[in-house]
Design a protein around this nucleic acid. Structure first.
Length: 417
RNA sequence: GUGAGUGUAGCUCAGUGGUAGAGCGCCGGACUGUGGCUCCGGAUGUCGCGGGUUCAACCCCCGUCACUCACCCCA
């Protein structure tokens, strides 16, 4: 047997309803908030992510499925969607064509990571991006929409966390203040934190090692180092969230890993998901469009992990649509006629199953029962001769004979058996 | 990349150094034109893979792969 690739998953019939539930909610919520859908390729130039996501990030350094194609180009499976959407926005001049550059996209991403609960090598994201709006009102609207999406799915116990990490002007000062506050205590931290102190000091706030916590708790907060413009912006964002009546927690420890984030960052954490508990995360990235060769345009957005949303969905969500009828043929003579009956009902828009080959009536009926069909349509010698069909309602076991032409209407909900 | 746990029937799992099991599911019958309930019968396994120890390995040892969870990273 040839097995699937590690970290990839087959979404089987018993789970696909939950996926459709999440995807439908995503599409509907985005439409309500004025977003339009964009679909970009799964493969991109490697340099798009080196420049966009950040050459120093783990995603680019060790997690990309990158290769040289037959033409000698460096290609990669996309590890995230934001750089692709920025590219499409710039490449096609979308700000000219659209009233607002509010885009969303749905699709698979690829990262070579060790799989665990809620984390896979091929995973799926809803990606939402807004280009060209600097006003904190859009930060508030994006975060409120993310929250509405989670609510729409009926997820209990989700928590919204926000922070501001400052801009290119004020963040370096905060980084320096962090290192200064750490001083000689860097050597007391865990190995991961000592590495972070070298590469990306902000990420020390992500540390989970209990021994490090007293030191980390004493570190300065990014909010206290914001420049005036960033401070005003953050106040504005919170004013909007308060006006919406959203409950949220400001956490100075919410620092996101991608290089491009500026000012607002946020996450929504789910309950019962294990260690990978971020249902969605995002923030503002005011320099990214220019960084990728476009005009100077601010940006903000988020990505939601569909696997995690499916995982967090309440029990029983996304049940399958029931089958309307299962046609049972009794005796060889009835088979051909039964197949035509099934065809006619299907063309009339009904969901109809029928068995194949001369199985016994008993086994056909067992299969009808197992299929969850609402009705059983019995066609034997008697019915054939009379031009009728026996319509049996499965739940009540009540049945009646109906003229063939009237079968479709007899299957309608509320039609008495 | 690191650590721990787990790999036995389609699924959930028991099992003992000496001929592979249960429950559920599946197929058939009891009931030749009435499903679910009950009873009876049946099929299905390279015991993850490779090597070693042994008269004999599903069991013990080594390696390897996969899965799960956690670290890292992040949706």
């Amino acid at each position: 047997m040839i097995s699937g690739i590690r970290g990839t998953r087959d979404i089987l019939p018993d789970e696909v309803g939950r996926w459709r539930r999440v995807e439908r909610a995503a599409v509907e919520v985005c439409a309500r908030y004025g977003y339009v859908e964009v679909r970009t390729p799964v493969i991109e130039r490697e340099e798009l992510f080196a420049k966009g996501t950040g050459a120093s990030t783990d995603i680019v350094q060790k997690e990309m499925y990158a290769f040289t194609d037959k033409g000698g180009e460096r290609i990669t499976l996309r590890p995230e969607a934001t750089p692709s959407l920025v590219r499409a926005f710039v490449e096609h001049g979308l700000e000219q064509a659209l009233p607002f550059a509010k885009l969303y996209s749905l699709g698979p991403m690829f990262r070579y990571e060790r799989p665990q609960k809620g984390r896979y090598r091929q995973f799926h994201q809803l990606d939402v991006e807004v280009f060209g709006i600097a006003d904190p009102a859009i930060d508030g609207e994006v975060i409120e929409m993310a929250s509405a999406f989670v609510d729409e799915l009926g997820l209990e116990g989700a928590e919204l966390v926000i922070n501001s990490v400052g801009c290119h002007a004020c963040r370096p000062a905060f980084g320096a203040a962090l290192l200064a506050a750490l001083g000689g205590r860097v050597s007391d931290l865990c190995a991961d934190c000592r590495r972070r102190a070298e590469t990306n000091p902000l990420r020390i706030f992500d540390c989970k090692a209990p021994a490090d916590q007293p030191i980390i708790d004493a570190l300065p907060h990014s909010e206290d180092y914001l420049c005036d413009a960033c401070r005003d912006h953050f106040v504005g964002v919170r004013r909007h969230l308060d006006a919406y009546g959203l409950s949220y927690r400001v956490s100075h420890r919410l620092v996101r890993g991608l290089d491009y984030y500026t000012r607002t960052t946020f996450e929504i954490l789910g309950a019962g998901l294990g260690a990978q508990n971020a249902l969605l995360g995002g923030g503002r990235y005011d320099g990214l469009v220019k960084q990728l060769g476009g005009p100077e345009r601010p940006g903000i957005g988020f990505a939601a992990g569909l696997e995690r949303l499916v995982l967090a969905l309440p029990e029983g969500a996304g049940g399958a649509e029931p089958v309307d009828a299962f046609v049972v043929a009794l005796g060889d003579a009835a088979w051909a006629s039964a197949r035509v009956l099934a065809r006619d009902l299907r063309r009339a828009g009904l969901r109809v199953l029928i068995d194949y080959g001369g199985r016994s009536s008993k086994s056909q009926m067992k299969r009808a029962n197992r299929s969850g069909a609402r009705h059983m349509l019995i066609l034997g010698g008697d019915e054939l001769a009379a031009g009728e069909v026996t319509v049996k309602e499965m739940d009540s076991s009540r049945q009646r004979r109906v003229a063939r032409a009237a079968v479709a209407s007899a299957l309608a909900p509320g039609s008495a058996p």
